[in-house]
Amino acid sequence: MTTASDLPVVDETDIDRYDPEYRAWLREAVRKVQADGNRSADTHLLTIPLPPEWGIDLYLKDESTHPTGSLKHRLARSLFLYALCNGWLRPGRPVIEASSGSTAVSEAYFAKLIGVPFIAVMARSTVQSKIDLIEFHGGRCHLVDNPCEVYEVAARLAEEQGGHYMDQFTYAERATDWRGNNNIAESIFRQLDQERYPEPAWIVATAGTGGTSATIARYVHYTMRNTGICVADPENSAFLAGWRDADRNASSDNGSRIEGIGRQRVEPSFIPGSVDRMMRVPDAASVATIHLLERLLGRKCGASTGTGVWAAFRVIAEMLAQGRHGSVVTLLCDPGERYLDKYYSDTWLADQGIDPDPYSARLEHFLLTGDLGC
């Protein structure tokens, strides 16, 4: 007869951390973030007028119409859902982010939505209008002189304050559902469905975290399309060198002057193998392009939009030279009103040694002839 003393000793430790109050808060927080996505109508796909005889259509995905005014609203929503569902966010504890501005604006919005504090660690050179928007949404800003310090400072603040470092540069590529779920790529292809060239020859993106280009590229490959993925990179960014040389340790000594894109290191969310082409765009070309867009669209755009559109024009010039027809898509990342004291200021441009006039002349020549002079 077996007695209790004959049974093997087994560790039956049972640790129950189920917290009804926290789970109720979590369900409500997720509901609020998902409801924001339901309320926000999909962003528009604008056309940039080109000579009809070219047989090429250029589209601009207008991400400035999101509630927080930029492409980063999608990313912030995904990051918050990812962090909430992983159990990383807790009531009353702060969310900290390293940001160049627009992501912090959007994350401040979502932090306020679910009722947690928010701190943005960003370069002191960030335009005041973005700082004002972060504070408008209830966040506060921690400014650093060296943009390369934002990662370390954000992580330290999170540890000191018992909060969560959101770390967009690591998690951007994995927080977004790239297979669908109304991500930006699925939206683009759905909106192109009735156009004369529904499968674009190229989609041109720009990279800050690398998450957007990764999402678009993965979706293109997953849905078995022929669309090429081009990433336009500004001056002083490490992405192009890292992609060209297959070197994830590539770096740049200076920070990008085009806010929101270009980094001094190759960020973890940048997926080089998903990208077909990279193109360096001079900062002066980006600025010249946003002034042209103001004339063509009747609205101001941020300089990161100019970076992408200049690269799209180069792609179109090549297609014309090759006798190809088709469509090209790029992104309107955020509104130019945030940068009136920067990219729309003659004084700032002169201080930076940026002269857009030669590129403006090339743009005028391109619209007349299809030749960008590259």
Rank of each mutant, 00 (worst) to 15 (best):
E63F: 05
L133K: 06
D371H: 08
G370M: 05
S100Y: 00
T330D: 04
L332H: 07
R23H: 12
T68K: 02
T369V: 07
R179K: 12
A175H: 07
A250H: 05
M224F: 12
N254Q: 15
D19L: 11
G323R: 06
R77T: 05
D346V: 05
G228M: 11
V329N: 09
Y197H: 15
R39F: 14
R248F: 06
R362I: 01
A123I: 00
A41C: 05
R124D: 06
C148K: 12
G353Y: 10
L81W: 08
K342A: 10
V266M: 08
R179P: 02
Y197S: 05
G228S: 12
K342E: 13
G208S: 11
D19H: 13
W25H: 04
V95T: 03
L45C: 09
L71E: 12
D19C: 13
V144L: 09
H44E: 14
D177Q: 13
A284F: 07
A158L: 01
K72C: 02
I216K: 02
W54D: 07
A285S: 09
E21A: 15
L331A: 03
N183V: 08
G370D: 03
T47C: 14
H73R: 01
S187L: 14
H66M: 13
D253H: 13
L332W: 03
Y59D: 03
D132P: 06
G323M: 07
V95D: 00
D276H: 13
F366T: 04
D253W: 06
R156G: 01
E318N: 07
R27V: 05
E53K: 06
R190C: 11
A175F: 05
K112W: 00
P91M: 01
E259P: 02
A41V: 10
A288V: 01
R140P: 01
Y82H: 15
Y82T: 06
L46Q: 14
G210A: 07
M122E: 05
T176Y: 04
T215S: 14
A185F: 10
R314G: 03
K130C: 02
A4N: 08
C85E: 11
S99V: 02
W178M: 12
L58Y: 07
R277N: 01
N249K: 08
F313H: 13
L349A: 11
A238T: 12
D355K: 14
A83G: 03
T3Y: 13
Q168F: 14
I56W: 09
I134C: 04
T103K: 00
C333F: 04
F270M: 07
S64R: 13
G302E: 03
G162L: 07
L340A: 13
L26V: 02
T103L: 11
A361C: 09
L367R: 14
E294N: 14
M166Y: 14
A24N: 10
E21W: 04
P8Y: 14
L45G: 08
E12W: 10
